[in-house]
Design a protein around this nucleic acid. Structure first.
Length: 567
RNA sequence: UGACCCAUGGUGUAAUUGGCAACACGUUAGAUUUUGGUUCUAAAGAGUCCAGGUUCGAAACCUGGUGGGUCAACCA
């Protein structure tokens, strides 16, 4: 009887965002032929960051889920700011994230012709005019948010004169800044964007796609909505700051439409992350000023930075899914992002041994010159990953943190007189150490092993408090390891009125460790390959890595309850 | 002396659209563990910004506050 109920409850669909609700309603109401077409519209003036990932997941995700399409459209209406370099990186990053636009790669510049015609149509209908005033005059006539604007003296030129001037603007007869085309809307509107917005300006720089074909270029408000319309976009999803643009978006669509199709703009909240910032301008500054090594510096919130850091596309998508879409300006805790990678990497990353700060351990009763191989599980979360052989001998390296001369309470690692298990190998007992009396540094630790405790054997099942990772000193491979911490030491570095965001740069955000020792199986690791260094964290091979000199980036540490207790 | 948007545990989101405020992260305990990871169990933590109103019943609807955000680029 209640099989049905139980099933219902178990399958009770997770709640959908307000945007998805709108979409579902529109589809159900049969709007626009019951179809959904979205678009992701980056401006090619910077690299994509995780905030863009939030938009990408929505734009492509909604189309995918409801059987529609999502176009990639570069919003390239400002030739002075945009570069081809960015176009390639943007496409690469979207693909990396796991989305595809097939053959629907569009550019606002594809529509320059139609936009120009539409502008002329507006002029002919008395809905646009050429203004000869300089920028500062136009600006002051706009009024303020609390005071209405005043009309331009050029507002009521004849259609013929406007048309003539507009054509000549485009022919290059006038200087940049000397004239603009404005839509004739309402100078007294409480919405600043409706006060005769500028829709075309003269720019004589070459455009990366259209070259010198045009001398006038449309503004965002005159290009975006219309491009949506031309492409048959049904849902134009963008961030909250465009909310006040919506009346203008709709106004232009009203002038353009000739049947009952119309795109709908819906706004959602931006992604903000603690201890970083998303401003493309500021990220560019960090790069230009050399505060970071480049757009793909693993500390950057850019997609290429996250990729180099070792994040997987799955983990980024998971994170985006976790935070949701609302209209609240929120600031998300990075720990949620970190949780998302850990969860993903836990399943897929092979486990290996790597010692960051090596300390030599001499197993005095282990035969000199003897060498053996022990078998280790590659991934306890997934048997199909199999096992591997790791060399073991009389001299090994362990982590400096794993030995203490005078251990605190509950320290389960190596200390004089204490026993510890070397994972996959033997149980050893510490019976001495060598200390540099001047520096206090522990230079070597001496242990004995119990041959019967080899893993897999009977005696190996003995309870031992601690289990350590280790690397054979003879076969160990040297590596450089880069440890990353948050780029800023303030939760909201760019939100402080008094202080420049640069003053919050975390001086400890990068620590380079050299002379690290990793197990020999890593010698063949290639860039972007990901591993869990057991007990330490997840690491990813850096682009700088070569077979001669391995370089790893720490993506994120493992949760460290001991480290926390110890604080 | 404006317009528009927003307000739910520490954080991010839910609440079958008016019916006992739920989930995730984080936190704290405990169990398991040849990773102080994972997994599992449990707990603490909000009575929904405030004040009125409508209603048998309000986080949700209405009114008024308060607080925050956005808007005055020939940027997008």
């Amino acid at each position: 009887m209640n099989d049905e109920n139980i099933k219902d409850r178990e399958e009770s669909k997770p709640s959908i965002s307000f945007i998805e609700q709108f979409i579902a309603e529109d589809l159900k109401a049969g709007k626009n032929g019951g179809k959904i077409v979205t678009r992701f519209p980056p401006e090619p003036n910077g690299y994509l960051h995780i905030g863009h990932a939030k938009a990408i997941c929505l734009d492509f995700g909604m189309a995918q889920k409801y059987g529609g399409k999502c176009n990639l459209r570069f919003d390239d209406t400002n030739p002075v700011k945009e570069e081809v370099e960015y176009i390639d990186s943007i496409k690469e990053d979207i693909h990396w994230l796991g989305f595809d636009w097939e053959n629907r790669e569009f550019y606002a510049s594809d529509y320059f012709g139609r936009l120009f015609e539409f502008a002329k149509a507006l002029i002919s209908r008395g809905l646009a005019y050429i203004d000869d005033q300089p920028a500062d005059v136009i600006s002051s006539q706009k009024g303020t948010p609390t005071q209405p604007g005043t009309e331009s003296p050029f507002r009521n030129r004849t259609v013929a004169e406007n048309l003539d001037l507009f054509e000549r603007m485009n022919k290059g007869e006038f200087d940049e800044g000397s004239r603009v085309l404005r839509a004739k809307v309402d100078m007294t509107s409480p919405n600043m964007h409706m006060r005769d917005p500028i829709i075309y300006r003269i720019i004589k720089s070459a455009h990366h796609r259209t070259g010198n074909e045009w001398n006038v270029y449309p503004m965002y408000d005159f290009a975006h909505g219309q491009s949506d319309y031309f492409e048959g976009i049904t849902h134009s999803l963008c961030t909250l700051e465009f909310e006040v643009h919506r009346p203008l978006y709709d106004w232009f669509i009203d002038q353009l439409k000739n049947d009952d199709y119309r795109p709908r703009q819906i706004e959602f909240n931006r992604l903000n992350l603690t201890y970083t910032m998303m401003s493309k301008r500021k990220l560019l500054e960090l790069v230009r000023e050399g505060k970071v090594a480049g757009w793909d510096d693993p500390r950057m919130p850019t997609l290429c930075g996250l990729r180099r850091r070792g994040y997987t596309p799955e983990s980024v998508r998971k994170f985006v899914d976790l935070i949701g879409y609302t209209k609240v300006e929120a600031i998300n805790d990075v720990s949620l992002l970190e949780h998302a990678v850990r969860e993903d990497l836990n399943i897929r990353a092979p486990r290996v041994f790597g010692v960051l700060n090596p300390l030599k351990v001499l197993i005095s009763n282990y035969p000199v010159g003897k060498y053996e191989e022990v078998e280790l599980v590659n991934n306890p979360e997934d048997e199909s990953h199999g096992t591997r052989l790791v060399p073991f001998c009389r001299e090994i390296f362990i982590e400096q943190d794993d030995f203490m001369e005078v251990p605190p309470h509950k320290y389960f690692r190596l200390a004089p007189g204490m026993e510890v298990r070397l994972k996959g190998a033997y149980i050893i007992k510490c019976d001495g150490f060598k200390k540099n009396e001047d520096t206090g540094e522990i230079e070597e630790v001496y242990c004995t092993y119990d041959e019967a405790t080899r893993s897999g054997g009977e005696a190996s099942n003995r309870k031992v408090k601690g289990t350590l990772h280790w690397v054979s000193a003879i076969q160990a491979v040297d590596a450089e390891v880069r440890l990353y911490d948050r780029l800023f030491d303030h939760e909201d570095p760019s939100g402080q009125k008094e202080d420049d965001y640069r003053s919050f740069l975390n001086p400890e955000s990068l620590k380079v460790l050299t002379g690290c020792k990793v197990e020999p199986s890593l010698a063949s690791a290639v860039p972007l390959e990901k591993f869990q260094f057991q007990r330490l964290g997840y690491f990813c091979v850096d682009y700088d890595s070569t077979p001669e000199k391995l370089v790893f980036n720490r993506t994120v540490s493992l949760k460290d309850t001991w480290g926390k207790i110890n604080k």
